[in-house]
């Protein structure tokens, strides 16, 4: 009985952590789906979100969720600017150029934060940080639950945006076939900017919701999140938003279960191994449609 409790507890934690991973993964997969660019700086935008919450908390005493109101639009515009001035100029160059450009952006963000905030880990203390409540014997962390709720709201909003609006149609059209979209009069350059803005916004949001739970460090945390985002999107299938959600939850559960039943030191490795296996044997992802191998 006790072991069942532990199992359910693990599943609950895995799903909630996985929700945040999903949020990070969606941003990456959206950008990849539309722009065919793997964004190496994605994790650094998550860290940027964390530090924005730290900053707003230090200066104005804001709760992280309040700072979302400012951090998300700022993230969106930062993304638009990066796309306009950097990525749009390499989009037609060999795929590596865009990858290298985002690698450069990643290094710039991480080290700029290091210069501004210093290297020591930062976090935001909130009153509800350690509060939990139990449902049927399973303890749920308040912070994770809030992050989960935020994720669900965001995903719902994204769903509406992609499926019910004109911009969403244009985004899907561009993802499907860029040339075709241009032929029917869609300004794909503008769509690229919007999509990259959305991607950064999602990353920033994930960062803000995570800050009560995790410490942020300028350069290392970014790489960790970028890797997680890759794992999530490759698990689900690159370029597929719905699958990124499943991929995120799967990664969360795999990590928590792997860590609790096998060797906890290798927590990070389970996701990476799954990632490699899928990259090798099913590059279209577990839930993706069959796509041409790049």
């Amino acid at each position: 009985m006790a072991s069942l409790d532990i199992f359910l507890q693990n599943i609950a934690n895995g799903v909630l952590i996985g929700g945040v991973y999903a949020l990070i993964g969606i941003g990456l997969t959206l950008v990849f789906g539309v722009m065919r660019t793997i964004n190496f700086a994605h994790g650094d935008f998550v860290v940027l979100g964390m530090y924005s919450a730290v900053l707003f908390n230090a200066l104005l005493g804001w709760d992280p969720y309040l700072s979302l109101l400012l951090a998300m639009p700022i993230g969106f515009f930062a993304g638009v600017i990066v796309e306009r001035f950097i990525l749009s100029r390499v989009i037609d160059a060999p795929p590596e150029s865009a990858l290298l450009a985002t690698l450069g952006i990643s290094l710039i963000i991480g080290n700029a934060i290091l210069l501004t905030f210093g290297g020591e880990p930062r976090s935001v203390q909130v009153s509800y940080a350690s509060s939990t409540f139990s449902i049927a014997g399973v303890n749920v962390s308040m912070v994770l639950l809030l992050a989960g709720i935020a994720t669900v709201i965001m995903i719902a909003a994204l769903y509406v945006l992609l499926n019910r609006t004109e911009v969403g149609r244009a985004i899907r059209g561009t993802a499907e076939n860029r040339l075709g979209a241009e032929l029917v009069g869609i300004d794909t350059r503008r769509i690229h900017s919007i999509v990259f803005g959305l991607g950064v916004m999602l990353a920033v949001m994930a960062g803000v919701t995570l800050i009560p739970l995790l410490f942020a460090t300028p350069t290392n945390t970014g790489a960790v999140f970028t890797l997680k985002a890759f794992v999530v999107t490759v698990l689900g299938g690159l370029g597929n938003v719905g699958a990124a959600i499943a991929g995120g939850i799967l990664l969360g559960v795999v990590e928590v279960l792997g860590a609790s039943y096998f060797m906890s030191e290798y927590r990070e490795a389970y996701g990476l191994i799954a990632f490699l296996l899928i990259l090798l044997f099913r590059p279209e992802g577990l839930f993706g449609r069959t796509v041409k191998r790049v």
């Binding site: 950097i86 290298l100 450009a101 690698l103 450069g104 952006i105 990643s106 290094l107 710039i108 991480g110 080290n111 700029a112 210069l115 350069t219």
Partner: peptide, 9 residues
Amino acid sequence: MLIYGILIL
């Protein structure tokens, strides 16, 4: 590493 970032861009 900031230099690497700027130079690669």
